[in-house]
Amino acid sequence: MRTVVLAKYVPDATADRRFDPADHTTVRDDIESRLSELDEYAVEQAVRLSEQSGGEVLVVLMGPGGAADAALRALQMGATAAVHVRDAALRGTDAAGTALVLAAAVGRAGGADLVLTGMASTDAGTGLVPAMVAHRLGLPFVGYVDELDVAGGTATGARETEAFRERFEVALPAVVAVTDHINEPRYPSFKAIMAAKKKPVEVIALTDLGIAPDEVGFAGARTAVESALRRPARSSGEVVKDDGDGGARMVAYLVDNRLI
């Protein structure tokens, strides 16, 4: 079986995430960045499936030079190889453009039995890309999956939305987006870290995918950010130590401020 994991290199959630004041893109330089934590679940699931029933795991990323670190992380976790789409024209690409590029990269790599993704990125967090990739590839899509098995060319599992939980079955190939409840991503061993150094990472550009520069980036974007303003930081207010009256004082605070 051949699994392709689509992954993103993102600013760390605990770093000072911010926007470029000129073009409102997410600042990607000089900020601690990593393989999106939500994509680690997809990598982990792909690797577990390959450990169970064999096959290779190809990781596809689109991003700036630093994204090589995210590719390396996925390889350390057990992925077989990585493709990194890197092109200056990609700056400003939105969800639709990202899906175009990722789907083309899956096609160029020879397709997949299973395309796995995280449920959303941890930075933009729209969660739109997985279904859009499925559309481009003409494949069925299952999102918000927190249990996933593959056997005999069929994927089975469970998914959950705010309204219901359901068990599903789909014949492969298909695109599946997994949540952070599906597994516990591994911490790579020293051996795995060393082995990853020898794994292939192919860096490709838009021309390799037959995509024109104006189909992506700001030119191809179907959405635009007009302004991005930092909210005033929240500050801590009154702190009381509970000496048996903490509960009553909390209620008094709520009442005094007409909150209840």
Binding site: R234, S236, E238, V239, V240, K241, D242, G246
Partner: peptide
């Protein structure tokens, strides 16, 4: 650090 009112307990 973000609470308007906090009880330590």
């Amino acid at each position: 650090a973000v609470a308007d009112f906090a009880v330590v307990g």
